[in-house]
Design a protein around this nucleic acid. Structure first.
Length: 640
RNA sequence: GCUCUGGUAGCUCAGUGGUAGAGCGCGUCCUUGGUAAGGACGAGGUCGCGGGUUCAAUCCCCGCCCAGAGCUCCA
């Protein structure tokens, strides 16, 4: 007695009729053999499911092939299971934690006595290949909590997770060959789908990310549908290593670190030139519409109590002994905001003056965990291009539009494509909803006015107001979160900030926190990696290297160097060793221009110019022409 | 902070229970060069810091410092 068929609606609106118990694989097969082969998983009524799961009743369904990002997540999740299968084969006693797909691959956490060695990883990878070759089907089963307790009686970590389920919740397990895991799924139909994968690294990871819990051993890996994608990914990892700012910073002599001041950079002369050039650029852009102020670095705790930092942020502050009181009741500033509030509050302000934009580029200190420090990207001492705008509620749209334009212009100057994220009200927040409605509407309007696409991150705003975050993509496709525009309704209350309105009564201003680079340190790290150390001429610490062919032409070279120097071009003359040696050296140091002077050039006042990376394609030109050309390139801050 | 790994010449790294090596860089001399490394000689080390084991420690053990990777993208 056949039961009623089910009706499957496809993305193009077509409706298929299939018998009860049909699976997404059946649907794919009924559409065509090509699709049946390419199918990885399916989306049924908005939920990603495995191909082999029976569809329950009428549904909207689309098939995921290896071109869908969601299918890659499924494959990687399955790869995590295959990894666990392999580890359990080789280390039967290993406890299993969680093993999800992540952005760039997957990981699985194991409870074992000792960390895995690289040799272990190689053996696991080998075993994974065997598991994949065995083409074990992934079988999904629904179980009761009671059954699950039984199945995982030897897996305390799984049991712990299990106890968090409600009694009536659907619990599923997946089984492939010898391996059984508590898992929501979905998975690819069988382990044979896993063809292109690689284990990358092992490291400790706390169970559930809680430092009070036991340390598990995590193995990271990645997997792709196509060999080419895997290769490209591995190549990108190599490329990132090659561009690592810590490595290039050392090679190009830009900055160093010393144990006597962990997390604080020593900038070399070259690095300082780079830093100052960036700072000059930032200052120049802020010259007209912003007011730069310098404020103290050290404050008593009264300020931090008022700002709320003393209670919530003290762990991250460097406290300083106050001789007067004998207490550590002073602190180096970890941010500039409170000093800007104080300065604003030091005078009465008319509504006519607003918006007021205060900028400070001072050094800040934050006591980050020692284990969190990393090169220039995570430091304890840094400087932000920090701005606080004081404005009226009715000015928000115009101001945010102005600031966005300002921030995007900055990234454009470095050829960093940017994207925008709008963070709306979080669960935990202050201020009434009417104010949030207004603030969000204003940000939205400003965002719309740019005509650019933006992502909405619901609930991602700060507790004191909504925000817009700016992310840039560097030359090898990595994304970095840099600038931010945050509305703040809390600070004006805490610091009792006011302005005198048209009605001659005091009103609360709104505060906007704005940063463009984030910190100079981190921004420079990103620039180093973005340019792979080959800075555009305007940023390069040394812009021209003059190479006299022999000592005889050194005077001529020095004369020309003086000319360039007078034109504010950063130039050095290098006369030792052979010409070939010096060319190689300048090329490795990524100097934008080499200028060679020999008998001919000295005689007719020319110079043979070789551009970085251009090889033997040199250009002989009158010296004045080269000065004109390079000064224009610097003035316009040309990209190359 | 915690786990693991590492710390040897300015840099990159090899090495050993018997007071240490390479390449590059650096110095001197020769060479005076035409577009990615000319040649010779030489200087340079508290083997991260402190303690312990040992006849003897850069090496083994303990502590500390610094660096690197990682520390929920939740079955």
């Amino acid at each position: 007695m056949p039961s009623d068929p089910i009706h499957i609606t496809l993305p193009d609106g077509k409706v298929l009729e299939l018998p009860q118990g049909s699976t997404a694989a059946d649907v794919a097969a009924s559409i065509g053999p090509g699709l049946a082969k390419a199918a990885v998983a399916a989306v049924v009524n908005g939920e990603t499911v495995g191909l082999m799961e029976p569809i329950e009743g009428d549904a909207e369904l689309s098939i995921l092939t290896d071109r869908d990002p969601a299918a890659l997540t499924v494959l990687r999740h399955s790869a995590a299971h295959v990894l666990a299968t392999a580890v359990r084969e080789l280390r039967p006693g290993a406890g299993i934690g969680f093993g999800p797909a992540i952005e760039e691959g997957f990981y699985y956490d194991f409870d074992v006595d000792a960390p895995f060695t690289p040799e272990d990883l190689a053996a696991f990878e080998q075993k994974m290949a065997e598991v994949a070759a065995a083409d074990q089907p992934f079988e999904r089963r629904r179980v009761t909590k009671e059954e699950a307790r039984d199945l995982f009686s030897d897996d305390p970590l799984k049991l712990e997770r299990l106890e968090e389920f409600d009694d009536d919740e659907v619990i599923t397990v997946y089984e492939n060959g010898p391996f059984l895991d508590l898992c929501k799924g979905p998975h690819v139909p069988s382990t044979g789908r896993l063809k292109h994968f690689k284990l990358l690294s092992g490291a400790g990871a706390y169970w559930r990310g809680d430092e009070k819990r036991q340390m598990l051993q995590r193995i990271y890996g990645t997997a792709f549908h196509k060999a080419k994608d895997l290769e490209e990914h591995l190549h990108r990892l190599e490329e990132a290593k090659r561009r690592d700012h810590r490595r290039l910073g050392k090679e190009l002599g830009l900055f160093q670190f010393h144990p006597v001041s962990p997390g604080a950079a020593f900038w070399t002369p070259r690095g300082t030139t780079l830093y100052n050039t960036l700072e000059r650029f930032v200052r120049e852009r802020q010259e007209h519409d912003f007011l730069e102020v310098k404020t103290p670095l050290l404050y008593t705790k009264e300020l931090w109590e008022q700002s709320g930092h003393w209670g919530k942020y003290r762990e991250n502050m460097f406290l300083v002994l106050n001789n007067e009181t004998g207490e550590h009741d002073m602190s180096l500033k970890p941010m500039n905001c409170p000093s800007h509030y104080l300065y604003y509050a030091s005078a009465k302000h008319s509504y006519r003056e607003l918006p007021l934009r205060y900028v400070t580029l001072d050094v800040l200190h934050r006591n980050e965990l020692s284990g969190a420090l990393a090169g220039l990207t995570r430091v304890r001492q840094f400087a932000q291009d920090d701005c606080h705008v004081f404005l009226r509620q009715d000015q928000i749209v115009e101001e945010v539009t102005f600031l966005m334009d300002f921030i995007l212009g900055h990234y454009d100057a470095f050829g960093l494509p940017s994207s925008l994220t709008f963070g709306t009200r979080p669960e935990q927040r202050i201020g009434d909803d009417a104010l949030w409605d207004q603030a969000e509407a204003a940000l939205r309007e400003a965002l719309e006015s740019t005509g650019r696409e933006y992502e909405v991150a619901e609930g991602d705003g700060a507790f004191y107001g909504p925000k817009i975050d700016f992310r840039v993509t560097d030359s090898i496709g990595r994304q970095w979160q840099l600038g931010t525009i945050q509305l703040d309704y809390n600070a004006p209350e805490r610091f009792d900030l006011t302005y005198v309105g048209e009605d001659n009564a005091p009103h609360r201003p709104v505060v906007i926190h704005r940063a463009v680079c984030g910190s100079f340190e981190r921004f420079i790290a990103i620039l180093i990696e973005h340019y792979a150390g080959a800075f555009p001429t305007w940023l390069a610490p040394e812009q021209v290297r003059l190479l006299p062919i022999s000592e005889k032409w050194e005077d001529s070279a020095r004369e020309f160097a003086a000319e360039l120097d007078a034109a504010r071009v950063r130039v050095a003359v290098e006369g030792r060793e052979t010409l070939n040696y010096r060319i190689r050296e300048a090329e490795t140091e990524k100097i934008p221009y080499m200028a060679v002077i020999g008998e001919r050039e000295a005689a007719d006042g020319t110079v043979a110019v070789r551009k970085r990376g251009a090889g033997k394609k040199q250009e002989v030109m009158p010296r004045a022409d080269f000065v004109a050309r390079i000064t224009e390139e610097i003035r316009s801050r040309a990209a190359e």
